[in-house]
């Protein structure tokens, strides 16, 4: 397949705008960063500081509801998940541990931090992007896949 052939720039940009509007709503309405890893930890009682638990839980519950609403409106969302449960477990453990250690993920450091021109978030985003690129390259080099 040619590079770019699967890309969906328009839908990506439109969905991105919606994500940005959601994050702006959290910032200007609730006075908080829409960082999913931090809100998730807060929602399940694994973070001592942060949003009130009800606020965190409401945001997290909203995520699958929003995806379900899109599926109900336009039909099934095409996805391909890793086939191996081990891939999901190892990936999940690393994402959970890493996002807490590094104080954020793609939403908190990526969307909210970059738009704030936070140098800390710029560094974090550069590191997790580079780490993600290197990881996929290494898995491919070892002949691994899903």
């Amino acid at each position: 397949m040619d590079a770019f052939s699967r890309a969906m720039p328009a839908a990506g940009f439109a969905g991105g705008l919606l994500i940005g509007i959601a994050a702006a709503l959290m910032l200007l309405g609730a006075g908080r960063i829409a960082g999913v890893s931090g809100l998730a930890a807060r929602a399940v009682g694994l973070a001592t500081a942060g949003a009130p638990r009800g606020v965190a839980l409401a945001f997290i519950v909203g995520l699958p509801l929003g995806a379900a609403a899109v599926a109900a409106a336009v039909g099934p969302i095409a996805t391909r998940f890793p086939g191996s449960a081990w891939t999901l477990v190892v990936g999940g453990l690393l994402v959970g541990f890493g996002t807490r250690l590094g104080s954020g993920c793609t939403s908190g450091h990526g969307v909210c931090g970059l738009s704030r021109l936070s140098f800390r978030s710029v560094v974090a985003t550069a590191v997790f992007m580079a780490s993600g690129f290197a990881t996929v390259a290494a898995i491919n080099a070892m002949g691994g896949g899903w």
Binding site: G15, I60, L63
Partner: peptide
Amino acid sequence: ALLAGVLFGAGLAIS
């Protein structure tokens, strides 16, 4: 927060 979560989740699905 619920509305923000719904919009965020919808954005992820659309994108």
